[in-house]
Amino acid sequence: MAALYPRWSNTVYRLALLGILLGAASAIAGPMLYVRSTYNTSQFTPYEQPVEFDHRHHARDDGIECLYCHSAAERSSNAGVPSTGVCMGCHAQVYKDSPLLATVRQSYFTGTPINWKRVHDLPDFVYFDHSVHIARGFDCSACHGDVGMMARVEQVQPLTMGWCIDCHTVEHTTLPNDAWEASMQMLITAPTRKPEITSLVTCTACHR
């Protein structure tokens, strides 16, 4: 009887089987890559805010302390965003009628809050506490990057659980309160993971 399959069908058959295997593998690997990509962690996307607030000007040029505006960070879990009153504290006199500050003035005099977009957004079931990290000597740049260099604030760190765990499981003493490099340096040079459950790594440290 004539041959059922032509010679070239073998290669087509093997390619088809290979395609199925690769398809299955990518169905598993695909989400893993997506989860680590910046689409999911929303890193490096400068958010367009209702007011064009430039940290480079305020934090770096004028040298205003982070805690001046985000004053709650030292005492509360929530760092807090400055109220319009804090802005008007200076801008009642400085750049009194600059068009860029129209929204701020309008908000101040009509009493409607400014509708900022949240840049660093942890899931609702994660309870991050600013005050204890600052008490341990962490500088804001450890997690928020060098905001002083950013025209629009963007998220620098992945803020994923793995990223937090890497820091929480490392044996470290209280940090000197210096800039971004020191806290990052501590991460790189840190000894390997200390395999023991401390109060930093137990689940209700962050999930309650």
């Binding site: 689409y39 709650a72 509360s76 929530n78 009153g85 804090v86 908000s107 900022w116 949240r118 957004d121």
Partner: peptide, 27 residues
């Protein structure tokens, strides 16, 4: 699974216009 991948809406922060001294957000 695909439905869950759509971009979650960005959350908003609306600070008070005038901060009463005793009210620290989060306390």
């Amino acid at each position: 699974s695909i439905a869950a991948c759509m971009e979650p809406p960005t959350e908003r922060i609306q600070p008070r216009v005038e901060d009463p001294p005793e009210l620290v957000p989060g306390m």
